[in-house]
Design a protein around this nucleic acid. Structure first.
Length: 875
RNA sequence: GGUUCCUUAGCUCAGUUGGUUAGAGCGCUCGCUUCACACGCGAGAGGUCGCUGGUUCGAGUCCAGUAGGAACCACCA
C-alpha cells in the first residue's frame, strides 16, 4: 500500500492559488490518479486486507442516466472510506453487454441479424450503412454477432467510463470485464456444467411462460403484471341429461383447448356433477367436471373452464388433477392450423376451421361470433379490467406452451433448498436491513425452478450437444458435454466432442443445443467472473466471498437472488457479506424517472454545471434504500460546500497554519481553551462519523462532518482570526495555528470520500501524494491534546458572539462596529467557559470590554453599547 | 390478500439504545461589499412531530389501532 500513515507532515512548500476554483479539477485530478495508480488493487495481499466490491455492470448500450451517478457515488464513498481505513480495495467495473438491449442495438447499428446456423466468417465486415429494409440485413453467425457486439461495446463503454471517471469513481480500471466476452462465456458455461453434474441443473419438458413476440421462454423473475381491459364471456356446457352448466371466461378463444371444468369441492351447486362428463359448446368436446380447492365459488359462475393453458392456475389444475393436454396455441401466438384429433364432430371440425391459424385476438372474435350465432352467448360480455402476465420487455400477453427447457434449481420446487436459500439471505447483512424481506418474500413465493434456456440467438450458448439416433431424433437423456479446456463453446458452430462437423444434424450424428442462457445466468456469476474463479483459485480466495454487493432494490429478485443461488450451489455460502441497496431517482414530482416520460436529465450536463463534488454531495446525502428526488438545489449546496473548503483552506494555509503535528501527538503547543475545545469536538466527530461509515450510513457521516465544518469556519475561525495574526503573542498564535492545521488536515480526510476533487486539490497545496491514500483519522491521535479539554467552550463563546452580532444586527449597523460596553449573564459553568475564550470573543466582537455576570437561566447578552457610526469620509 | 417502508417547519430531509425549551439546508424577512469566500457573511420568523388510545416519572422515539401515500409479492377462470 502507498503512504497510508499519518506521517505526512513533510515540509513541502505551501502553494495556494489566489483564486481557487472547482473548474477543471475533475479532468486534472482523475488523470493524475490514473497515472499514479491511486486506486490500483494490489494482488499481493491476504483476504483480511481486502475489501472487495461486486460492482454492478451497467448496460453500456443503454443511455446514461442520473441514476447511474446516484448509486455509483454511494458505493464509491464506501470504497474510499475502506481504502483510507487501510483496506486493499478491489473495486472493478464490468459492462453488461449480454442481453436484449445490446442485441437490439447491434442489429440496428450495423443492420445485421444473428442466425446461429450461419457459419462463422472470419473476414466478415458489416455494411457501412444498415440497409433500410430489415429484410436486406446481413445474416451473420453467432460468433460474428458477438464480435460486432464487442466492437460496438468499446465505443459505448468509453462514454460510460468518461462519465464515471469525471464523477470520481475510485474504480481500478485495470479490473474490467464484459458479460459477453470469452472469459464470461467460459465462466457461465463452466458454472452451468458444474450445476448440471451436481444435479443443480436439469432439463425438463413442461408448460412454460412464452413470449410470442420474442418467441422465447421467460422466467418467473421476468414477469410483470399489467392491467388490461378484458371481458367475461358467459356460455354453457351441456351435461348428459341436458342440464346447462354456465361458465364465465375471459379467454373464449381457448374453448377448443378445454380439458375440464373445475369447481370447489364444497360447492353444493356443482357437487352432483363431479366426475360426470359434459360437452363443450361449438366444438362438441367431452370434458369431465372436477373438484379442486383452488376454484373459487364466488368467482364468475363458480365453475371454471380449464384449458391447456390459459394461465398458471390452469397449469396447477392440469398437473394436480392429471388432466390431458390439448394445446392449440403455437409458439407464434397463433391457433395451430391443423385440426386437433380430440375434436371429432363434423360441426366441431368446421368450427375449428374458423379459428385455425388466427392470432389469439382474432380467434377470440371468431369463437364469440360462433357462440353468438348458436345463441349460446348468455348476455352481453361484461367488460372488466384485470392483471395480465407480460414479459417485462414484451408487449403482448404471455402464452403458456409446453416445451423442453433447462432449469437451475432455486428452491421453487424443493422445501429444503428454499429454506437454505432463505438462510443465505440471513448471512448477508442488508443495508438497509428491511430490504432483506424482499429477498425472503421472493424466495418463499417461488412457484418453480429457474428456467434458464432462452430461444434467442445472442447470448451465452447452452454448452451441450445431443446424439442423434438412426431416425435422426435427438437423445435428450444423454447430452454430450464439452471438456473444461474447450470452454467457451458454441454448439451451433463447434462440432460435439468425438464427432465430425459433417455429422451435424444427420442420423447417427449429433445436433447442438440451439438455445442460449438467460442473461441472469451469466450476470449471477459476476463475483466468479471478476474474481477469476476456476482460472486463478488463489486469487479467487482473496476476494470471495465479496465484502459488498451494491445494487438497486428493483433487481433483488433477479440479480441479487440469482447470484445467491449460484453462490449456494457452487461454493456453499452467500456470495457477499454486505448488500447495499440503493434507491431510485424520482423526478421532482416524486414520479419514477424514465425515458418514456421524457424527464430524464443528461448526467454530463449536470456535472459540467455544478461539478462532480456537487453531484456526489447530492447522492451521498441520501440514505441507502431511500428513493430520492432529483434535486438541483441539493447540488448547489454541495457546490457551495466544495468552494467553501477551497476558500477556508486557502485562508488557513495562508495564515501559516501548516503543521498538524497534533495529530501525531505533539499536543503541548495547544494551550488555549477555545482551541482545545475545537479539537475535542473534532475528536467526537471523527468517532461518530467513523461509526456511521462502519455501519454503511455514509449520509449520516457526511452530515456530521459538514456540520462540524460549518461551525469551524463560521464560529471558530471568526473567533480566532485576531489571535492567528499574532495579536496576543507567539504562544497563543502557535496554539491557534496548530489547531487550525490539525483541523484542516482531519477535515480534508473526513470529506475525502465524499468530495474527492476539492479535498485532493487542497491536499496538493501542502501535502505530498493524494489524500485518497492518506489514513482515515482516528481520535486516538488527538487524545494527548485533549486532557481536560472542555468541548463546551466553543459553543458557549459562539453563542455569546451570536448575542453581540444580534445586537448589531438589530441596530442595523456593520458587524465590525465597536462595542463600547456590554454584559453577558450566564450560569457559573458557562462563565467559566467564556473566560477561556474571552480574548477571542472581545476581538471577534470588536468589543472593548464585556462584563461577565453569574446568573441562573440561559446565556444572555445585554446592555450592549455601540460606538457611534463613523461619519462617511468627506469626498 | 400477504409483506415492507414512509407520514416531523412552505419545500427536501435529520432526529442512533425513550431524557432537559424538536434540528439542518433550501425558500422567506431584515441587515452587512468585515482585509478566505457576494458561488459570500450576520440576524430573524416559521412545527400541537398524520390521527386515537396505551406503557412510562417522562413518548417524535416503544406498543396497539386508525387514516393517507409508496414499493415488493401473490391473485389473474
Amino acid at each position: 500500500m502507498a503512504e497510508n500513515s499519518l506521517g505526512t507532515d513533510t515540509p513541502l512548500p505551501v502553494s495556494v492559488p489566489d483564486k481557487p476554483a472547482l473548474e477543471g479539477l475533475e479532468e486534472r485530478l482523475s488523470a493524475a490518479w490514473r497515472t499514479a495508480g491511486t486506486y490500483r488493487f494490489d494482488p499481493e495481499t491476504t483476504r483480511d486486507q481486502v475489501y472487495s466490491i461486486d460492482t454492478p455492470p451497467p448496460t453500456a448500450s443503454g443511455s446514461l442516466h442520473v441514476g447511474h451517478m446516484f448509486s455509483y457515488t454511494q458505493t464509491d464513498v464506501l470504497a474510499r472510506y475502506q481504502r483510507m481505513r487501510g483496506k486493499n480495495v478491489f473495486y472493478p467495473m464490468g459492462w453488461d453487454d449480454n442481453g436484449l438491449p445490446t442485441e437490439r442495438r447491434v442489429q440496428n447499428f450495423y443492420g445485421v441479424r444473428c442466425d446461429p446456423k450461419t457459419p462463422y466468417d472470419p473476414d466478415y465486415a458489416p455494411p457501412a450503412q444498415p440497409a433500410k429494409n430489415q429484410r436486406d440485413w446481413d445474416v451473420v453467425s453467432r460468433r460474428n454477432f458477438i464480435e460486432l457486439c464487442e466492437q460496438l461495446a468499446v465505443e459505448d463503454e468509453k462514454v460510460f467510463e468518461h462519465l464515471f471517471t469525471t464523477l470520481g469513481l475510485s474504480v481500478d480500471w485495470d479490473l474490467t470485464y464484459r458479460t459477453i466476452d470469452d472469459v464470461s462465456r467460459a465462466v457461465s458455461q463452466r458454472a452451468f456444467l458444474t450445476n448440471l453434474s451436481a444435479g443443480d441443473a436439469y432439463m425438463a419438458e413442461a408448460p412454460t411462460l412464452w413470449d410470442v413476440t420474442f418467441r422465447t421462454a421467460v422466467a418467473q423473475a421476468e414477469l410483470e403484471d399489467r392491467e388490461m381491459p378484458g371481458a367475461y364471456y358467459r356460455y354453457p356446457f351441456t351435461a348428459a341429461d341436458g342440464t346447462q352448466i354456465h361458465i364465465e371466461t375471459t379467454r373464449p378463444e381457448l374453448l377448443a383447448a378445454c380439458v375440464a371444468l373445475v369447481a370447489h369441492p364444497d360447492d353444493e351447486r356443482y357437487q352432483p356433477l363431479f366426475g360426470q362428463k359434459v360437452v363443450s359448446p361449438v366444438f362438441g368436446v367431452e370434458v369431465e367436471v372436477r373438484a379442486h380447492p383452488l376454484a373459487k365459488a364466488d368467482k364468475g359462475s363458480g365453475i371454471a373452464m380449464v384449458c391447456t393453458f390459459g394461465d398458471l392456475t390452469d397449469v396447477t389444475w392440469w398437473r394436480e388433477l392429471d388432466l390431458p393436454t390439448r394445446a392449440i396455441i403455437g409458439r407464434d401466438g397463433r391457433v395451430t392450423a391443423e385440426t386437433p384429433e380430440w375434436i371429432t364432430s363434423e360441426a366441431g371440425r368446421e368450427a375449428y376451421a374458423a379459428i385455425a391459424g388466427k392470432t389469439v385476438f382474432s380467434a377470440k372474435e371468431a369463437v364469440v361470433e360462433l357462440l353468438r350465432e348458436a345463441g349460446l352467448l348468455d348476455g352481453e360480455p361484461k367488460k372488466i379490467s384485470h392483471p395480465v402476465n407480460f414479459f417485462e420487455k414484451g408487449d403482448k400477453p404471455l402464452e403458456i406452451v409446453t416445451s423442453r427447457q433447462w432449469y437451475i434449481r432455486n428452491g421453487g420446487r424443493d422445501e429444503d433448498r428454499r429454506e437454505r436459500l432463505v438462510g443465505r439471505g440471513k448471512e448477508i447483512e442488508f443495508h438497509p436491513g428491511f430490504m432483506r424481506s424482499r429477498y425472503t418474500n421472493w424466495v418463499e413465493g417461488l412457484n418453480g425452478d429457474w428456467l434458464v434456456s432462452r430461444q434467442r440467438f445472442f447470448g451465452v450458448p447452452v454448452p451441450v450437444w445431443y446424439p442423434l439416433d438412426a431416425a435422426g431424433d435427438p437423445d435428450y437423456e444423454h447430452p454430450i458435454l464439452p471438456s473444461e479446456e474447450q470452454l467457451p463453446v458454441d454448439p451451433a458452430a463447434d462440432a460435439a466432442p468425438g464427432y465430425d462437423e459433417a455429422q451435424r444434424d444427420v442420423p447417427g450424428g449429433f445436433t447442438g443445443d440451439a438455445d442460449v442462457l438467460d442473461t441472469w445466468a451469466t450476470s449471477s456469476l459476476t463475483p466468479q467472473i471478476v474474481g477469476r474463479w476456476s482460472r486463478d483459485e488463489d486469487f479467487f480466495a482473496k476476494v470471495f466471498p465479496f465484502d459488498l454487493r451494491p445494487q438497486g432494490h428493483d433487481i433483488i429478485r433477479t440479480w441479487l437472488f440469482s447470484t445467491a443461488v449460484r453462490g449456494d450451489a457452487l461454493h456453499g455460502c452467500a456470495p457477499w457479506k454486505h448488500a447495499a441497496i440503493s434507491g431510485w431517482i424520482l423526478d421532482p414530482d416524486r414520479k419514477k424517472m424514465s425515458k418514456s416520460k421524457g424527464n430524464v436529465v443528461v448526467p454530463t450536463d449536470v456535472l459540467n454545471e455544478f461539478g462532480a463534488d456537487a453531484v456526489r454531495y447530492w447522492a451521498a446525502s441520501a440514505k441507502l434504500g431511500a428513493d430520492t428526488a432529483y434535486e438541483i438545489a441539493q447540488m448547489k449546496i454541495g457546490r457551495r460546500l466544495a468552494i467553501k473548503i477551497l476558500n477556508a483552506s486557502k485562508f488557513v494555509l495562508n495564515l501559516g497554519a501548516t503543521s498538524s503535528d497534533v495529530l501525531d501527538g505533539a499536543a503541548e503547543v495547544v494551550v488555549n481553551g477555545l482551541d482545545r475545545s475545537l479539537l475535542a469536538r473534532l475528536s467526537t466527530v471523527i468517532d461518530d462519523a467513523s461509526r456511521a461509515l462502519e455501519s454503511y450510513d455514509y449520509a449520516r457521516a457526511l452530515d456530521l462532518v459538514e456540520s462540524f465544518f460549518w461551525s469551524f469556519t463560521d464560529d471558530y475561525v471568526e473567533l480566532v482570526k485576531d489571535r492567528a495574526y499574532g495579536a496576543r503573542g507567539p504562544e497563543e498564535q502557535a496554539s491557534v495555528l496548530a489547531t487550525l492545521a490539525t483541523t484542516l488536515d482531519a477535515v480534508l480526510r473526513l470529506f475525502a470520500p465524499f468530495l474527492p476533487f476539492a479535498t485532493d486539490e487542497v491536499w496538493g497545496w501542502w501535502r505530498e501524494g493524494s489524500v485518497h491514500r492518506a489514513a482515515w483519522p482516528t481520535s486516538a491521535h488527538l487524545a494527548a491534546a485533549l486532557e481536560g479539554a472542555d468541548p463546551g467552550v466553543l459553543p458557549t463563546v459562539g453563542s455569546a458572539l451570536g448575542g453581540i452580532r444580534k445586537a448589531k444586527s438589530e441596530a442595523k449597523v456593520k458587524q465590525r462596529t465597536e462595542v463600547v460596553a456590554g454584559t453577558i449573564s450566564a450560569p457559573a459553568a458557562q462563565i467559566e467557559q467564556l473566560r477561556a475564550g474571552l480574548g477571542d470573543l472581545l476581538a471577534a466582537g470588536n468589543a472593548r470590554d464585556l462584563t461577565l455576570i453569574v446568573a441562573d437561566g440561559e446565556l444572555t447578552v445585554g446592555g450592549v453599547e455601540l460606538a457611534p457610526a463613523e461619519e462617511p469620509a468627506p469626498r
